[in-house]
């Protein structure tokens, strides 16, 4: 870990770029606070973008029906005047309090962002690769079983088993085949979710005898001391076979996990952050929590509740940063100074 990594400075670091994190940019922006947002996904929208981009949502005030993606797009348009800065594909690994009361947030790419205030809007946690429901798979993780490829060299000259039928499974089949000792792609059916071009390239490798394609499901892993030797597979026809492999890459989609937030010394209640309903402050002064990640008496996990929480939190965050400044409450409809900030 480099101690000299360049530190970006801002007013507020928002962890999570879902709808509530995005709207917080608006409320904080009206109070002249500049925001950086960090999200593990590669785009804004959080669950709305990842889980149900096309699904209609019916309980957003004044929108009788709007899709997850539509809501995200409109929030992005609404916060544009405040020029938020996004750090996508990043997971926040640590938050460190500084002597001056500010915080330095570190990402898994070892970037550092210093904020006067932290807002945790992390929803159900960060999206992480799902552990497939194979009994005993845990003992092989990080030795033989990997859920992503960080270093291709880890796979050179290995018998590789890739499980799945989406883009990740296909892309890594194509990328790892040239350096693998052998490569087997296992999928439960003959239809693939990935890009047609990747599917064609994969099928060509099968035809050329360079990879094996098996239709079936993994039922178990065999080996010892964390090292896999083979996988037990039930084929589509119902036969039980063993597939030799020393590296396994299962791609079973994403799930939400609280992740490193649990290690930041904040009070937690069943993986949620208890807050008050005036400031939405956590147990650490200067760290706020809004949206699905927080809990309080009567909490409803609704986007609209998260928006309300963002508005109140913004007032509290402003007071935390500038305790001596008088905050004059204003409406966007009538305040010329707010309209100037919005560029209207």
């Amino acid at each position: 870990m480099s101690e000299n990594a360049d530190i970006v400075e801002t007013d507020v670091v928002i962890i999570g770029a879902g709808p509530v994190g995005l709207f917080a940019v608006f409320e904080l922006g009206l109070l002249d606070l500049k925001c950086h947002l960090i999200d593990i996904l590669d785009r804004p929208g959080g669950q709305c973008a990842e889980l149900y981009p096309e699904k209609p949502i019916y309980d957003i005030p004044a929108w009788p029906e709007i899709s997850g993606q539509g809501l995200t797009d409109r929030l992005m348009e609404q916060i544009k005047p405040f020029e938020p800065e996004f750090h996508f594909n990043r997971m926040v690994t640590g938050v460190e309090k500084q002597e001056d009361g500010s915080f330095v947030v570190t990402t898994d790419e070892n970037e550092k962002i210093k904020g006067k205030v932290i807002v945790i809007a992390a929803g159900g946690g960060s999206f992480q690769p799902k552990r497939p429901p194979v009994p005993g798979i845990e003992e092989f993780e990080d030795h033989s079983v990997y859920y992503s490829v960080r270093r291709m060299e880890e796979f050179r000259d290995h018998d590789i088993l890739i499980v799945g039928g989406g883009d990740s499974a296909l892309d890594w089949t194509l990328n790892l085949q040239p350096i693998a000792k052998s490569l087997t792609l296992l999928h439960r059916r003959d239809a693939f979710r990935g890009a047609p071009d990747s599917v064609n390239k994969m099928k060509k490798l099968v035809d050329e005898g360079k990879i094996d394609l098996i239709l079936g499901q993994v039922t178990g892993l065999n080996g010892a001391d964390g090292v896999v030797e083979s996988a037990s597979v039930k084929t589509k026809e119902g036969d039980l076979i063993d597939v030799n492999c020393t590296r396994v890459l299962p791609f079973f989609g994403l799930t939400m996990k609280l992740g490193p937030i649990a290690d930041w010394g904040l009070n937690l209640n069943e993986n949620l952050l208890p807050v008050d309903t005036e400031k939405f402050a956590t147990s650490e002064p200067g760290i706020f929590a809004i949206g699905d990640i927080n809990t309080y008496p009567g909490k409803l996990k609704l986007i609209l509740s998260g928006f309300h929480e963002a508005a109140l939190m913004a007032q509290a965050a402003k007071k935390h940063i500038s305790p001596d400044e008088r905050i004059v409450f204003q409406y966007t409809t009538s305040s010329t100074s707010l309209q100037k900030k919005l560029g209207v």
């Binding site: 799902k130 429901p133 439960r188 979710r193």
Partner: peptide
């Protein structure tokens, strides 16, 4: 739904 079933256990 078929796509999602890829992620289920013991289909």
């Amino acid at each position: 739904e078929e796509d999602m079933l890829d992620f289920a256990y013991d289909i």
